[in-house]
Design a protein around this nucleic acid. Structure first.
Length: 723
DNA sequence: CCTCGATATATTTTT
DNA sequence: TATATCGAGG
């Protein structure tokens, strides 16, 4: 047996974690310290050396991407496919359990998964039904409230009524929402987890079965688990000392959506026989970046304690640029990226990280203007697009006619002459008789007192769904999807829309058919053989919303929020908008706990950088149409000056916060150039000065190069020669 | 039923 | 500032 492949690539701490005997284990893995490697090798070790069957191993992640990567790497390491290995996201695994045990958790076989968009829609609909003003009861807040309760494992029926009117109303809505979901066979994301927990808690035999089956349980990004996820893990592993978790308290950045960093602390109480191993050697960043990041994070209280180090050198200093305004900031960043690319760097190795999405625009504009390919993460995802959701709603209705959310969605999309009045009648009957909208529609037609036209339209809709169901019965999955796309009238609807938009939507629908054709329903066969291909595809669409838009085919500059950057790495990183009120965000500054999370976010951002880290802030920023003059972020002050090189040239270079801005620039270049002056540039060759603007470090000149054409250059970097 | 204009509203995101 | 959503009116 060749175990060197598993052991050799590991450092001492990693090896300790990988080869430890079965026991409760907490691996505190710093950024870039090889946490996935430990998890992958640990599992391979158990299979190959400890003789644990892949069938008896469970590994849980947060994202599908992480799950996929882990499975891939384990299979690579073992050299064989490991399809009996249960590895997936909390939600994916919960879903699998609920499908297998639908009866025990009182769900219909064809229950459908709602994404957050669906959920919001349902809540809005519910408010209208309950005659509540959605200005007074903002749907988003209600959604937040409901999910927060569920994340804590709290069901509406177990909540005591309070005297507080507001609380009472919220609870009433939560109740109504639960009732609606039950009636329609709909399950939201939080519900997947909650019900999977209840499955274990209320069915000792089921729980015992899985406790027996899973001899080893592994969890990735443990610091991101919420209350219900951890409770679920505990049911599965209590008293068994077989829980192996990997996480980093310093990278907990999802507290605002229920993640409990405390779970790391509780782990030590709940599993008294645990062992803790710290991974502190970093294989990603240079020494300066790590030392600076260590300093920043050390400002937080109550850490587990961890200090990253590297045995590769200090590297470059971190650069800090004080931009005049957000335009200048973008200009600086884009120029730096161009310089990087000119020197042979790949664009995809450069990332611009910001605190909030609204900041991306200025960079996009500048990148666009310079013709630099870029990619923005975080847009609408494929399965979340309206046209896709419409098509899926038809499919869902075919699978489960009680799915009222889907019924509402497509009954009049495209418009087919079913008016608000008819719809209201249907809802009324559904409410009175506690039946689905579909059933209510049939009742309404049979009553016969509907105006002829409305009755025909409604019958037409019901028949359409029935026809689609019958016709597609023996079809392949992709043919079903194709049939729906063609016969639902969606294509005709989008053909009528403004050329470009409509065109794109039709293309997306075609892409959906294609996705169905490529859908690999064999990959989860082990557990879901009783599920129809269609239902598997629908679940896949909800649980894995697909890649964000854009292709990775091109060599693109990467733009994303700090949150989405977690887990990624780039040679060149720009952390922009380092300003009080922006980062840390205004909402976090007067709450110690939230401020610490912002600091962890800063730590995450800094540790994304492999070679170069550039920090920027603007002295003046236009945001939401308002001009503001923010102070530099406190996080900048927390980085010792010795790791920083200020890019702005000033008379006196000192610490950024304390430095007084002087008008006297150290760069008296303004007089050097005149309009029409002939200059030389190392890359662009010879040219003539056309315009100048800005002062000091901000001074830019426009030059008409003989070869390269007209360009704006920043004097501080251009290294021009007068000719 | 659709279009236009008024209005609110703007961290962070995966599942 | 930009966008999304909603209600009135053609």
């Amino acid at each position: 047996m060749d175990i060197t492949k598993i052991i050799d690539p590991l450092n001492d701490s990693q090896r300790l974690a990988v080869t430890a005997p079965s026991q409760a284990m907490l691996v505190l893995a710093g950024a870039g310290s090889g946490k996935t490697r430990v998890l992958v090798h640990r599992i391979a070790w158990q299979i190959q050396v400890e003789g644990v069957s892949a069938h008896s191993i469970l590994a849980v992640t947060f994202t599908n991407k992480a799950a996929k990567e882990m499975r891939g790497r384990i299979e690579d390491l073992l050299g064989i496919p490991a399809h009996t290995l249960w590895i997936g996201t909390f939600h994916g695994l919960a879903h699998r359990l609920l499908r297998r045990h639908a009866k025990q958790v009182k769900l219909p076989e064809t229950f459908q998964v709602m994404d957050s968009g669906d959920q919001l829609r349902v809540i809005k609909r519910l408010l209208t039904t309950l005659n509540l003003d959605d200005a007074k009861w903002p749907p988003r807040q209600l959604q937040w409230y409901i999910n927060a309760q569920k994340d804590e494992g709290i069901r509406a029926r177990y909540m005591a009524a309070t005297d507080d009117m507001y609380q009472r109303q919220m609870l009433a809505i939560y109740r109504a929402y639960e009732a609606f979901c039950d009636r329609s066979g709909l399950v939201d994301f939080a519900e997947l987890l909650l019900r999977a927990h209840e499955l274990f808690r209320e069915n000792p035999d089921v729980l015992e079965f899985y406790r027996q089956r899973f001899r080893q349980v592994h969890v990735d990004e443990f610091q991101d688990t919420n209350t219900i996820q951890y409770a679920w893990l505990r049911l599965l592993t209590d008293g068994k000392d077989n829980l192996f978790v990997v996480g980093d308290d310093d990278q907990s950045i999802y507290g605002w959506r229920g993640a409990k960093i405390e779970n790391i602390y509780s782990f030590q109480r709940h599993y008294p026989n645990h062992q803790i191993i710290k991974l502190e050697q970093n294989y990603r960043s240079t020494g300066n970046i790590l030392k600076a990041a260590n300093q920043v994070i050390s400002m937080n209280d109550g850490r587990m304690g961890k200090e990253l180090w590297t045995d590769s050198g200090d590297g470059d200093l971190i650069s800090l640029y004080a931009a005049f305004n957000e335009q200048d900031e973008a200009y600086f960043v884009v120029e730096r990226i161009r310089a990087w690319v000119n020197e042979g760097g790949a664009r995809s190795d450069a990332a611009i990280l910001y605190r909030s999405n609204a900041q991306s625009r200025q960079f996009e504009e500048k990148l666009m203007a310079t013709g630099t390919p870029y990619r923005v993460y975080g847009g609408l995802r494929f399965f979340e697009r309206a046209e896709i959701k419409n098509a899926l709603a038809y499919l869902r209705l075919m699978s489960n006619r009680n799915d009222d959310a889907s019924f509402e969605r497509v009954i009049n999309t495209p418009t087919r002459g079913i008016g608000a009045k008819t719809l209201e009648d249907i809802r009324k009957i559904a409410r009175e008789q506690s039946i689905s909208l579909w059933a209510a529609a049939i009742v309404l037609i049979n009553q016969g007192d509907l105006p002829g036209r409305a009755s025909n339209a409604l019958t037409g809709f019901l028949n359409l769904i029935k026809r689609l169901t019958e016709q597609s019965e023996d079809m392949e999955l992709y043919e079903k999807v194709k049939l729906v796309v063609e016969k639902s009238g969606l294509v005709e609807l989008y053909k009528k829309e403004k050329m470009e938009k409509g065109e794109e939507k039709i293309e997306n629908l075609e892409e959906l058919v294609n996705a169905a054709r490529l859908f690999d329903f064999t990959q989860d066969q082990e557990s879901e053989e009783n599920l129809s291909e269609l239902d598997m595809f629908l679940a896949h669409a909800a649980l894995e919303a697909g890649e964000m838009q854009g292709d990775d085919i091109d060599d693109c500059v990467q733009l994303m929020t700090l949150h989405s950057a977690k887990g990624l790495e780039f040679k060149l990183v720009f952390l922009v908008g380092m300003e009080e009120g922006l980062f840390p965000s205004q909402q976090s500054v007067d709450d110690a706990g939230r401020l610490e999370e912002e600091r962890r976010l800063c730590y995450v951002g800094m540790t994304r950088a492999m070679l170069q880290l550039h920090l920027t802030y603007a002295e003046s920023r236009r945001l939401y149409g308002r001009e503001s003059y923010p102070r530099p972020s406190r996080f900048l002050r927390e980085i010792p000056g010795q790791y920083i090189q200020e890019v702005r040239m000033r008379a006196t270079v000192s610490h950024p916060i304390t430095a007084v801005k002087t008008k006297t620039s150290s760069l008296q270049v303004t007089s050097t150039y005149k309009l029409g002056q002939r200059v030389g540039h190392s890359k662009f060759g010879e040219g003539v000065v056309l315009q100048m603007e800005g002062e000091g470090a901000h001074e830019r000149v426009q030059i008409n190069f003989k070869q390269a054409g007209v360009k704006w250059l920043m004097l501080a970097y251009a290294q021009l020669k007068t000719l």
